[in-house]
C-alpha cells in the first residue's frame, strides 16, 4: 500500500512547553487512522504539523514523498477543529466560491450531504446550527475528493445525529479505497468502528499505535483501551 504521510520523531514546543514529543507514524492509502487522546495531548498541533500548517522544531514530515507545502493542499483537505470557512455568505455562494478555490471540487458530493443535513442553499452560513455548519464544512472537504482527509475533532460539541451523519459521510468517502483519513478525537464512543488504525497520544507523546481490531481484541473495546492506557 502506498505510504502517503510519514512522520519521523516529530517534536514541537510552544514557549518552552513541549506540545508534541518525538512522534512517528505513517498513513497509508485507503486507511482511516484515528488520533485519540485527551484535550491538550497535542493532537491538533500534530495534525497541523502533518499537513504543513505548522513547522516542527525537530524530526521530519513527508507528505506524498516530499516536504509539505501549499501544493499538498491540492490533495489534502484539512478541517480545523473550530473556525469558519466564511460566515458572510450564503451556502450556495460558499459552494460556488469553493468550486473556484479548490481544484477538482465536485459540488454534487457537497449537495448530497447538504440535502441530508437539511441545509437549504439559500441559507446564510452564519444562520446554520452548529451541527449543520460542521456538516457543511465536512461537505466542503469531501467534495474536494482529497487523497488525504485530515479532520481535527470534527464531532466536538455536536449532537448525536450530526455526529452519526458525519461518521457515515466519512465512511462513504473512504469506501472507495482511494482516500485516506487522519482524524483526531477525544471521544471514542462515536468512532469505535471507524478506524483501521488507532494512535493514542498522551502528553504530546505517542503511547500506542496499532490496528483497531487488534486493540479491540486485546482490550475489549477502544473505549476500554483508552481508559486503561490513560489511567496506567
Amino acid at each position: 500500500m502506498t505510504e502517503l504521510l510519514r512522520l519521523d520523531e516529530v517534536g514541537k514546543s510552544f514557549r518552552g512547553r513541549k506540545v508534541v514529543d518525538g512522534i512517528s507514524f505513517t498513513l497509508r492509502q485507503g486507511r482511516a487512522v484515528g488520533l485519540l487522546g485527551p484535550n491538550g495531548a497535542g493532537k491538533s498541533t500534530l495534525l497541523k504539523i502533518a499537513v504543513g500548517l505548522i513547522a516542527a522544531d525537530s524530526g521530519k514530515v513527508q507528505l506524498f514523498g516530499g516536504t509539505p507545502s501549499w501544493r499538498s493542499f491540492e490533495r489534502v483537505a484539512f478541517l480545523p477543529d473550530r473556525g469558519h470557512f466564511t460566515r458572510g455568505m450564503s451556502v450556495s455562494e460558499a459552494l460556488q466560491l469553493a468550486g473556484r478555490l479548490y481544484p477538482g471540487f465536485n459540488p454534487g458530493t457537497a449537495r448530497e450531504i447538504l440535502e441530508d443535513a437539511r441545509i437549504s442553499r439559500g441559507a446564510y452560513v452564519n444562520e446554520l446550527s452548529k451541527g449543520q455548519e460542521a456538516r457543511f464544512h465536512l461537505a466542503l472537504c469531501l467534495a474536494r475528493r482529497p487523497a488525504v482527509l485530515v479532520l481535527d475533532e470534527p464531532f466536538a460539541g455536536l449532537d448525536i445525529l450530526s455526529r452519526e451523519a458525519m461518521v457515515e459521510a466519512v465512511i462513504g468517502a473512504i469506501a472507495g479505497g482511494v482516500q485516506s483519513v487522519l482524524m483526531s478525537t477525544h471521544d471514542v464512543d462515536d468512532v469505535e468502528g471507524l478506524f483501521d488504525e488507532v494512535i493514542l497520544l498522551r502528553d504530546g507523546g505517542l503511547s500506542l499505535w496499532d490496528e483497531a481490531e487488534t486493540l479491540r481484541a486485546r482490550y475489549g473495546s477502544l473505549r476500554q483501551m483508552y481508559k486503561e492506557v490513560m489511567r496506567g
Binding site: 500548517l53 501549499w70 501544493r71 493542499f73 484539512f78 480545523p80 473556525g83 469558519h84 466564511t86 479548490y102
Partner: peptide, 8 residues
C-alpha cells in the same frame, strides 16, 4: 486555518 490551507 481555512485561509492557510488554501492550495495557493
Amino acid at each position: 486555518w481555512w485561509w492557510l490551507s488554501l492550495p495557493a
